[in-house]
Amino acid sequence: MIANNQCGIFSSSSVELTKDDILSAMKSISGYIDITPSDFQEIYKIAFRHAIERLSRLVKAEDIMTRDVVSVAQDTLLSETAAIMEAANVSGVPVVDGDNFIMGIISEKDFLEKMGGKKNGSFMGVIAECLSNRGCVAMPIREKSAKDVMTFPVITAQRSNTISELSKMLAEHQINRIPVVDGKGRLVGIVSRGDIVESYCAKVF
């Protein structure tokens, strides 16, 4: 499951009720309630957890995916690819062929690694490399295209995958987004960590 500090609703422990909250709630209910505040608190935690688990099974990729996906072709120059990503304010884009079949995916991490950021490259690592060499470390890849740096094969999802399954896939593969494909492997959408967080927030609130 995604870290609960992004939305504050992913586990019962992230929504703590005080005894005053419980007593106020119990007093607002007309009639007699034969239950202690501690019992009520425990029931609430269990019910909340079940509700979150139920929602995670009901919501599918097709319900939350971005359908108008920003993508690039395999022969798109990296300079153009970077400009497209910057204009769309995204950190990764799928690479597709002329029939919209997904061939790979390219992210900021791919750029960083090719620019000297090494395997676990970071932006500051590239800056350090650039400054130590007194030159632009992007020059060697300036004329390369998306196919030269993209990651493949690509981890993909189906429209029917639940957000619980999507969350697990993102966590297991340590990725921030997952393309959604149809039965033939053609790109139909993309789901990011942010999309999953927002779906939980929308359903609960």
Rank of each mutant, 00 (worst) to 15 (best):
D21W: 04
I22S: 03
S24V: 10
M26K: 09
M26W: 01
S28D: 12
I29Y: 09
S30D: 15
I33N: 07
I33D: 08
S38Q: 13
S38C: 00
D39T: 06
F40C: 13
Q41I: 08
E42V: 13
E42T: 12
I43H: 07
I43N: 12
I43D: 10
Y44R: 11
K45Q: 14
I46C: 08
A47Q: 08
F48R: 11
R49F: 05
R49P: 00
H50Y: 10
H50M: 10
I52Y: 02
E53T: 07
E53W: 04
R54S: 13
R54T: 11
R54W: 09
R54K: 15
S56I: 02
S56L: 02
R57W: 09
A61K: 06
A61C: 08
I64E: 01
T66C: 11
R67A: 11
D68H: 15
V69M: 02
V69T: 04
V69S: 03
V69Y: 03
V70T: 11
V72R: 01
V72M: 08
V72I: 12
V72S: 03
Q74N: 08
L77F: 13
L78V: 03
S79N: 07
E80N: 14
E80W: 06
E80V: 12
E80P: 02
A82S: 13
M85C: 04
E86K: 15
A87S: 13
N89K: 14
V90A: 02
V90R: 03
S91P: 06
S91D: 02
G92T: 05
V93L: 10
V93W: 11
V93M: 08
V95G: 02
V96A: 02
V96C: 09
D97S: 04
G98W: 06
G98M: 07
D99N: 14
N100H: 13
F101H: 14
F101W: 00
F101E: 06
I102C: 00
I102N: 01
I102A: 05
